[in-house]
Design a protein around this nucleic acid. Structure first.
Lengths: 263, 263
DNA sequence: TAGTGGTCTAGACCACAGC
DNA sequence: CTGTGGTCTAGACCACTAG
């Protein structure tokens, strides 16, 4: 039985962490980011134990709750699992790409797939009934309808159709060609909060097929999505169609239950 | 009619909440559940403002952080949005069904669709290479392979194929007919923590088509999934095939960023 | 029994929104 | 300015796991 300073079997991992107390970025967030980077970067292996809360709080001069908040964030994202009496362990199988509000554009860019976009159409038009319902505007209200094709590695990946309420009818085709839609909205001060998405499969129609370089009737992945801002107002409704041979969704879900604090 | 206190425009909603301090269920969790029930039950409408933290903490005799933890949980699930200087507002468009570890079985039961299951096969077999990799066992290791068809409203919905590591090779066909797989695992003390899932679309093969009452080549929604327990060990690998005309995935995602605390 | 996370408290100060 | 949530502290006590 080892006395004071010797370490046990699954020894806590060594991390060099540096917090900037003068930064506007919250301390718990800085900490979470750095630990996440260590995990994603491979410098902390799956199965490794992270330092316990008390020790880490002490080492960093933080309160224990602050460390817990950071660790809790990693728990929510499924990067680590925590158990009483045991510790905080790095999960295996983390794919990193939970279904956030990052657009496909962001995803691909991250994967160095060099995505590009062609804007097929951009016009202000009266909202069809289903779009109006999703955007919570009166049927026939002016909305911006956008149609784009996304390419990756030079070949078409999917067809993106978006509708935006009147507030953003001034988005230009140029902007849309060069930036992701959510990126543009964020730049305009829109704070995206929640997305509801429905993912299904279908046989593609003739026109859509042509646009994405498929045969009519080919299998495609379809999504329908409404995104809300922090006022709870719908800011985008989208219907996308992806080539099944070139795209899939990947997501990570972590359970939440008592004993599985969110922070 | 309440007191003659003059309220502002979007007045905080009235909730009758009761906490049981002697319960083993954490206070923040009880609170979150009750508020969620009020929202889901429609007694609190989208756009309504919830009581502010300080007032609610005072009313319930809780510390503010405890109330924050409850509200934070609702924020994570996309049910409410919170803004400094404004308050906590119930989001519209909440579908309730974020991609947790609930099985399709659970989902359908919740929707009163009366699901049923037929176990087509259940055998212990050497793990194929891909399954072994996902379950992190040596290729050829003994695993339990299950094949089931899920029915809803009397018609086949999808084909479920699961592989479990040696620990649970004793699950019986009877059990699997009567209970969801995750339900059975939980009953055995397995604590599911994280799932990685990949959703795609494909044209169904001849054998699978027959099993789900489709024509060969019909469009199906496919998923591939690994579920991990709280030790970070894989406890299930699954490949499912759903009829595209009868099933889709629906999920809610909430953004996380500083200023959007997880709790 | 010792080590770990889980819950909860009672404060403090700050940042942002809206009047 | 006031009201709201966002962050942080420094404790306390409890519950679970492992040796």
């Amino acid at each position: 039985m080892p006395r004071s300073r010797s370490i046990q079997l699954p020894d806590p991992v060594g991390l060099h962490l540096e917090l900037d107390r003068s930064s506007p970025v919250p301390l718990y967030f800085q900490l979470a980011q750095q630990v996440e980077a260590a995990i994603a970067g491979g410098s902390v292996v799956a199965g490794a134990r992270l330092p316990n809360e008390v020790a880490l709080a002490d080492q960093l001069g933080l309160a224990r709750e602050t460390v817990r908040q950071a660790y809790g964030q990693l728990t929510d994202r499924g990067m680590v699992a925590r158990k009483r009496g045991v510790g905080t362990v790095v999960m295996s199988g983390y794919v990193g790409r939970s279904l956030g509000l990052s657009s496909l554009y962001d995803d691909l860019r991250r994967a160095n797939q060099e995505p590009s976009t062609t804007v097929l159409g951009r016009r202000v038009t009266p909202a069809p009934a289903d779009v109006a319902a999703a955007l919570q505007v009166p049927p026939g209200a002016r909305v911006l309808a956008i149609e784009r094709v996304r390419y990756a590695a030079g070949a078409p990946l999917g067809l993106l159709r978006n509708w935006l309420p009147e507030t953003h009818t001034d988005l230009s085709a140029t902007e849309l060609t060069e930036h992701g839609l959510y990126e543009l909205l964020r730049a305009r001060g829109v704070r995206l909060r929640v997305a509801n998405q429905r993912v299904g499969a279908a046989a593609v129609g003739a026109r859509d097929a042509r646009l994405i370089g498929e045969r009519r009737g080919a299998t495609v992945l379809t999504t329908e999505r409404t995104v809300y801002d922090d006022n709870g107002r719908p800011v985008e409704f989208g219907r996308d169609v992806y080539r099944a041979d070139r795209y899939y969704f990947e997501m990570t879900a972590a359970v939440s239950a008592p004993g599985t604090r969110s922070a």
